[in-house]
Every structure is written in structure tokens, then in C-alpha cells.
Design a protein around this nucleic acid. Structure first.
Lengths: 191, 191
DNA sequence: GAGTTAAGGCAAGTGTGTTTGCTTTAGGAT
DNA sequence: ATCCTAAAGCAAACACACTTGCCTTAACTC
């Protein structure tokens, strides 16, 4: 990527778009020539850049999901987590979000270290929690947020149906409700 | 399957075994001829029976996962859920369990109705909860068990690393701890 | 604006996954 | 024991994804 912002970026975006559209349209095993056609690009360009369909899918999923639902800064932990959870929930009600999450799970190598995507999210989360702790608010651990807010939202999408509106907010409320009023730093659950 | 228990079943098991072994060994995109070779079976048999690689993977995953970690009957809800959660946790520490869960997520059609596999689990869970309620114990809803016990265990496997020993038991304890002492039927969370 | 060079496009060649018609085998039925 | 039929095996034809060498385009640099 020594030439950012030019033709290279255009092709990359067009290919990512094509992947998302095709998957969302139900062509879940569209091969590279089909994706290239949809993107208005030569198949060779895809083979040369991504090498395999799985690498392309993983790249598209990570890139696109990373842009989704950042953690807001509302001034209170409750507001931050609630805004974030609602964003995740909304993204997971979009068929494209669903398919991207599924593609991510499908193409991640099982022995992969904690995926960069989720690690970055964990870091963001930690920063948000740190700020809240500095304000004197009682805070959960990152693990608790992932276990009791993100996990239910994701599991519902992957195995059942997308969470109904309000689920994210309810999960956040339940988690924060369970915290001790004392803002002493909590012993993490060991992740 | 009009001829259960004979050659047909042997071939099916051999093919399922081959799938699990190959996936667990890292050959995640082993094609059908490769699976057939490993199973000691003719590729045509696989094409005729399953039609596509995805159908085969889904069938193998559902079949094998269904046999894993049933809910025990210990006489107390706490014991039942704890035994089950520990079983799930253990299955997810096995590379074959991990890969099967991943294959399941990857090959499920996104618009699939709640997957038969998880629906059956939900029914088992409901039966366990009903028994406990009949004994006068306070019980959570099926949704709560899925959200706060199964979801964290699955998410950790899919995105991070398998849960450490004791995680399942701790999740169950936390859930039951949060219940009101009054065993009145709880209003479900609407799933 | 001319030069430099990744990256994209093109086209021909190659391999392998998939299909299909036919034959053989093995379980169950009579 | 013999018949019957689904399912498995076999082999040849087929299709198409993938590779590769070469040429062209376009973006950054001086």
C-alpha cells in the first residue's frame, strides 16, 4: 500500500463493496471471478492482491466492521456503553453487518491470536473504562463488558435472530447495576 | 436414510470423521476429493449424498455438536446448569469442538430459522428450568441462560481463546446469584 | 511536465473439482 | 436362500477457477 488514496484504494473499495453485496444477496459462495465482475475489476487483480478468497473475505470483514459503532464519549460510562451497545445492535440488524460478522468468524484462522479487530475494540473499551474510573465511577472489567454485552448481541445474530431494539441498552444497564457502588478498581476475571 | 445402521451409516461416519480430522489438522479448505480420500470413500458418494461441501460441513457440525455436553439431572438447577456449562466449556477446549462450532457458524445460511441444533438445546434447557421451577427453585429464563452463560463461552472460542477452566461454573453462579429469592415465574426477556 | 514504478488489465495455458451414465455391492424383504 | 433396490464405486467428459508472462495505465517524484 505504498500508494494510498489513488487507484489502489478505489479498487480495494470496489472489491470490498462487491464482496459485501454478493454475500448479502445470498451468493455466499461466489468465487473470485464473480466478485471481480461485480466490482468491475479484473480477476487477476484480486488474485494478485489477496491471493485467496478467504483472505479477501477476512480483509473485507475486518475493514468494514472496524468502521462500525465506535465508542462515543458522553461524559458518563453508562452513556458511553449504552451508545456503543446500541450501535453494535443496529449494525447487527443490518444484513450486511450480519454477513460480515459471519464471514469474519468463518475465515479467521482458529489458532489466530486474539483477532486484531477485537483487540482494537478491547483497547478502546479499556480506555473508556479508564476514563470512567478516573472520574470516580464504578467500572466493570473489559472481560465483563465483552461477556455480558457483546457476547449476547453477537450470539443472537450468529445463532438466532438479531437482537431486538433496546437489548443492548438493557444488557448495559444490567451489567452496571451489578457493580458495587464503591469505585475501587475491580479485580479482573483473568483474561 | 431408509437403511439405517448399515453401509450407509458407516460411510456417513467415516466422512464426518474425515471432515473433523482435516479441519482440526488445519486443512480448512480441503476439497471434497481430499475428504473422500481421507474417509476411504469415493468422491462421487459425497457429491451424491451431500451435494456441496457446505452442506457436508453443516451436517457434520450439527451431528457431532449435538452429541456433546447434554444437560445432566442432578436434582438442583445449580448442579444441572453447572454440569452443562462445564461440559460446553470442556468441548470448546477441544480443537475439534472449536472447529465444529466455527464450521457451524460459517455454513449456516444467515436467513436460516433458529438453527435446529440450538433450538433443541433451548428445549432441553426449558425442560430443565421447568423441573427446577416445579421444585420451587427460582429460575432464570432460557434467554438469560443463553445470553449470560452460553454466549460468553462461545464468543471466547470464536474470537479470543477458549474459556479457562471454571469459567462456565462462575458464569452460572453469577446468573443464579442475580435471581430474586422468590420463585415466582419470571417475565421472559421476549425472545 | 517528464520519468519511474507499483498496480491493473489481458490472454493463453494448466490443473483440478464436479458432473454423469453405467456397473457393482450389500442390506433388507419375501 | 433368493430377489430387490438404495447406495457406493468407477471412469470419462466437462467446466471453470486459478496461474503466469507480458503489456498498459496511472499515481507519486523531481
Amino acid at each position: 500500500m505504498t500508494r494510498p488514496g489513488g487507484r489502489s484504494a478505489r479498487v480495494r473499495d470496489a472489491v470490498h463493496d462487491a464482496v459485501v453485496e454478493l454475500l448479502a444477496a445470498g451468493e455466499i459462495d461466489a468465487a473470485i471471478p464473480r466478485i471481480a465482475e461485480r466490482a468491475g475489476v479484473n480477476p487477476t487483480s484480486i488474485y494478485r492482491r489477496w491471493g485467496s478468497r478467504d483472505h479477501l473475505l477476512l480483509d473485507a470483514a475486518v475493514t468494514r466492521l472496524r468502521a462500525t459503532s465506535p465508542i462515543p464519549d458522553t461524559g458518563s460510562l453508562h452513556g458511553d456503553l449504552r451508545g456503543w451497545a446500541e450501535g453494535v445492535e443496529r449494525a447487527m440488524r443490518d444484513p450486511r453487518g450480519q454477513i460480515l460478522l459471519r464471514a469474519l468468524v468463518a475465515t479467521m484462522s482458529p489458532d489466530e491470536k486474539p483477532l486484531e479487530y477485537l483487540r482494537a475494540r478491547g483497547d478502546d473499551l479499556q480506555a473508556t473504562l479508564d476514563k470512567a474510573a478516573a472520574r470516580g465511577e464504578p467500572v466493570p472489567s473489559v472481560d465483563e463488558v465483552l461477556d455480558f454485552v457483546l457476547a449476547p448481541l453477537y450470539l443472537r445474530v450468529l445463532f438466532r435472530r438479531p437482537a431486538e431494539p433496546g437489548t443492548g441498552a438493557r444488557l448495559v444497564e444490567r451489567l452496571l447495576m451489578a457493580l458495587p457502588a464503591d469505585p475501587a478498581p475491580r479485580a479482573g476475571r483473568g483474561g
